[in-house]
Amino acid sequence: MLGFISDRLVRLEMGLAALMAAAVTLLILLNIGSRSLGMAIYWVDELAIYAMVWTTFLATSVALKRRQVVAVTLLVDLLGRGTHAWIQLLCDLMILTFALALLVLCWRWLDPVTFASGGFDIKAFQGDTFNFVYSEKTNTLGVKKIWPWLILPFFSLSLTLHALNNLLGSLKGATCVKGAVQ
C-alpha cells in the first residue's frame, strides 16, 4: 500500500517538476517579449522564481525516492557488500529523520490546528500566536506568500512517505544479506 502510494506520488511529482521547469523558461520568454514591446510585466520574475523553487523541492523528492542523489560514497566503496545494505539502511533512516523533522517544523510554523479552531481568522490568529505567516504577502504577485510556501509541507509529507517506503525496502535488504552472511 505504502509502496503503491509512493510510486504514484513520485510520478505526479516528476510531472509537476518538469512542468515547472518548462514554466521557468516560458515565463522568462514572456518577460523578454513583453519588455521589448514596452509592456513590462511587473510580476513575471517573481513567479519564475517560485516555479524554480517548486521545481527544486519536487525534484529533490523524486531524486531521494529514486536514490539518484549526490553523496560521498568513499566509505561505502571501501567497505564490502555485507555492510553496504546496513549503511543504506542508516542512510535511509537519516533521510526519514530529516523528512519527519521538517514535517514537525512545518506543523509548528503553520500551526494549522490553532488557525482552524479560530475559524481561519488571520487577525485573531496572529493576535493569539504572534505568528504572521498567513498575512505575509509576495512582493509583486499580489497574493499571499503562504501559497508558494505550501510546497514545504507538501515536500516534507511526501518525502516522509518515500523515505519510509525506502527504509522498509532496505530493512528487508539488510536482514536478508545478513542472513546470507551468517
Partner: peptide, 10 residues
C-alpha cells in the same frame, strides 16, 4: 532538466 537543476539548487 528539472531533476538535474533541482538537485543542484537543493
Amino acid at each position: 532538466t528539472a531533476l538535474n537543476a533541482g538537485m543542484v539548487i537543493m
